[in-house]
Design a binder for these strands. Structure first.
Lengths: 349, 349
DNA sequence: CTGTTAGCGCCTTCAG
DNA sequence: CTGAAGGCGCTAACAG
C-alpha cells in the first residue's frame, strides 16, 4: 500500500531496470509467481506462466543478480583478475585463458590492471574482495603478498600466477622459468657461443631471479664465467633494453650471443641488433607473434600463456567448489620449450 | 533473538566474509554504529570508533558492496565491456583505455570476450545487464544490434566501439576507417604503384566495407580500375591472408603493392612477401609493435586504440552521470595517421 | 551520540 | 497451484 508511487501509464519510463513487483502488477499475480515462473518452477499453471512471460517481455525484466546473490547467500559468480599490464600480450593471453574457463563455469571476470603499482594492486584486491568475488587470481608485482592472504580476505580463495606465494598459503601457477632459461642458454653454448650476455628483469622479482639462475647454471655447467659486463638486469621495458644492447655491442669484446629474459628485453635487443646489422645471436624468453619472421633469426623459450590463465582458473574453481576442505597449497608448473625460428643462428664471430 | 546460531568461540571460522552484525557484536554496539564509523560519519565518539575499528580489523570485515548497492539503489559501479578477441592487441589496448578511465571514476571493468560469436555476445550483454552494470561498452561482431538496445536493457547506457549503431540510438566511438584507407592507398599511388591489391575483412562488416570504400575512392580518383583479381576480402585471420597473398604474388601480372585492411591481414601479407622475397610494397591498417623493424619496409595507418577505449568510457560516464537527460546519440571519431616505417618503400617493378 | 525501524530485490518457508 | 511472511547485508530516516 505504501509502495512508492509507481510509474504512471503504460510502458515504463527510462528510470532504470524493472523489478519483480512491477512485473507482478502487470501480470496481475504476486511477485512469488513471477519468481517461480522465471526459475522454471514446475508449480505454475500454463495460463499464469504465459501472462507472466508476456509482462516480462513487455517490461524487459531481468532478475537483479546482485539481489538474488544476496538472498541466496551465494557467491557473486565473479572471478577477480589482477594483472600488471594488459598491453603485454602475455597478460592478455592469460586473461583470455581465465575468461574461457570462467565461462565454462558460468562465471565472469572482473578485470583490474595494476600497472605494476603495488598500491593499485592492493586497492584492486580489496575492492574485489568487497564485491564478494568468488575467487581472486593475481599476478603480483612485488614480493609483499600480505594483502593477498585469504586469511585477511574473509577466506577468499586466491591463486597466484607467475610467481610463487611469499608467506601466504595459496595455490600458484608458475612457468618453468629456470629450466627455460637454462635450456636457452645451453642452446647458445651448444652453438659455440662463449660470450653470452643476459638481459633481464630486476633481481628482486621472482622471474628475474629464476631466469638469471638458469642462465648462470648453464654457464657454470660449461665452465664459463658469469661476467658482470655481460649482465644487464635493470631494464623492464623494450627501450631501455635496446639501449643496454647498444652498450653491449659497443663493448671492446662484445658478446656473440644475447639471452633476453622476457619479451620486452627481446624486442629491445632485436631492435638494437637489427639497427647495427650485428651478427649477434638472439634468444629470448617468451614467444610472440612475428618472432618467426623478423630480420634476425630468433630462438625463443615458448609456452602457452593462455594455458597459464586456464590452469589458474581451474585451481580457483576447485577451491571455490570445496570452500571448507582445507587443502594444502598446490602448484602447477607450465612447461617451456625451445623454438628456433628462421635460419640457423649465425655462428659466433 | 532468533539470529542464526553465530559462529562459536573467538575468531571466526573460515566460513566466508564477516557481516556488520558480527562486528557490532564484537564491539558491543549496534550495526548502525559500525556502519557510521566505517562511513566516517561525524556522529561517533572517539572511544566507540576505536572499539569498532578494533573489531573490524580483528575480523577482517569489509562491507558487502552488493548489499550496499542494493540498499542505496545505486549502480554497481561496474562497466561491462564486451570485445571480440582480447588476443588482438587492438582490443587489449582498448580494454586498457576503458580500465583507466573507469578507475578514474572509481569504477571497475567486467570483461567478456565474445570470440566473434554473436550468440556469446548476446549472452554476455544479457548477463551484464542482469548484474546491473552501470553501463556497457561493446565491440559488436555482427550487424544485428537489437540486443544492445538500451530500450530493451532497462535503460542501460550503451556505447559501441568500432562500428556505428544499427537501428539503435546509442553513442559510438569510431575510427576514421575511410580516410585512413583512402590516404594509405593514395600513398601507394603517389609512390608510383598502379597495381594495388586489397586484403580485407568481409564486406558485411562495417570496417571491411569502409576500408574497402577508402581504397576504391583513392583508385577512382587516380582513374585506376578496381580489379577483382586484386581484391581479397574474405579472410579474417593472418593465415588465410598469407595464403591470399601467395596467390596474389602468383598472378600472371602480380600487384606491385598491397593494402591490408587490418593487422591480421598485414601480418599474413608480410609473411608471404618475406617468404617469397618479393619486392611488393606493403601498407596496412593498424599499427603494431615491431611494425617498424620488420624485414620488409612497412607503412601503416596508425591511431591510438587506447584512446578509443578511453573515449568510449568517457561517453559512457556522461550517460551514467545524467541518466535522465535524453541526449541525442553522439559519435567520436578517432583520427588516423599514415606512418612510414623503415627505408622508403621499394619502387614498383 | 547511539539505537530502532524499515526496506532495497529477491527467494525459502510455510499457509491457504 | 498461488500468496504472505520474513530476511540476506546494509543504511536512510527517525527516535531517544
Amino acid at each position: 500500500m505504501t509502495l512508492a508511487p509507481p510509474p504512471a501509464g503504460g510502458s515504463r519510463p527510462g528510470s532504470g531496470a524493472p523489478t519483480i513487483r512491477e512485473v507482478a502488477r502487470q501480470a496481475q499475480v504476486s511477485p512469488m509467481t513471477v519468481s517461480r515462473t522465471l526459475r522454471d518452477d514446475p508449480g505454475v499453471s500454463a495460463a499464469t506462466r504465459a501472462r507472466v512471460m508476456d509482462a516480462v517481455l513487455a517490461l524487459g525484466y531481468r532478475p537483479n543478480e546482485a539481489a538474488r546473490t544476496l538472498r541466496l547467500g551465494r557467491s557473486s559468480g565473479l572471478i577477480g583478475l589482477v594483472v600488471t599490464n594488459l598491453a603485454n600480450p602475455f597478460y592478455s593471453q592469460l586473461t583470455l585463458g581465465v575468461e574461457a574457463v570462467a565461462t565454462e563455469h558460468g562465471m565472469r571476470v572482473l578485470l583490474g590492471n595494476s600497472g605494476s603499482d603495488p598500491a593499485r594492486e592492493r586497492q584492486l584486491v580489496h575492492d574485489f574482495a568487497a564485491r564478494r568475488v568468488a575467487g581472486l587470481i593475481a599476478v603480483p608485482c612485488h614480493n609483499d603478498h600480505s594483502h593477498l592472504d585469504p586469511g585477511r580476505l574473509g577466506g577468499l580463495p586466491v591463486v597466484l600466477a607467475g610467481s610463487p606465494p611469499v608467506k601466504i598459503g595459496v595455490d600458484a601457477v608458475l612457468l618453468d622459468d629456470f629450466t627455460g632459461s637454462w635450456e636457452a642458454t645451453r642452446h647458445l653454448i651448444a652453438r659455440g657461443h662463449r660470450r653470452i650476455a643476459f638481459l633481464g628483469l630486476p633481481a628482486s622479482t621472482w622471474t628475474g631471479s629464476e631466469r638469471f639462475r638458469g642462465y648462470c647454471a648453464a654457464l657454470e655447467e660449461a665452465a664459463l664465467p658469469v661476467e658482470d659486463r655481460y649482465v644487464w638486469r635493470r631494464q623492464a621495458g623494450a627501450a631501455p633494453a635496446q639501449q643496454a644492447t647498444r652498450e653491449l655491442l659497443d663493448d671492446s669484446d662484445p658478446p656473440t650471443a644475447i639471452f633476453a629474459a622476457n619479451n620486452r628485453n627481446t624486442v629491445g635487443a632485436y631492435r638494437a641488433i637489427r639497427q647495427r646489422g650485428a651478427a649477434t645471436a638472439l634468444t629470448g624468453f617468451d614467444d610472440f607473434e612475428l618472432a618467426d619472421a623478423l630480420a634476425v633469426p630468433l630462438t625463443v623459450v615458448a609456452y602457452e600463456p593462455r594455458e597459464m590463465g586456464a590452469a589458474a582458473a581451474r585451481l580457483l574453481r576447485d577451491r571455490i567448489g570445496n570452500a571448507g576442505a582445507a587443502q594444502a597449497p598446490r602448484r602447477v608448473v607450465i612447461p617451456t620449450t625451445i623454438v628456433e625460428y628462421g635460419a640457423a643462428a649465425g655462428e659466433p664471430a
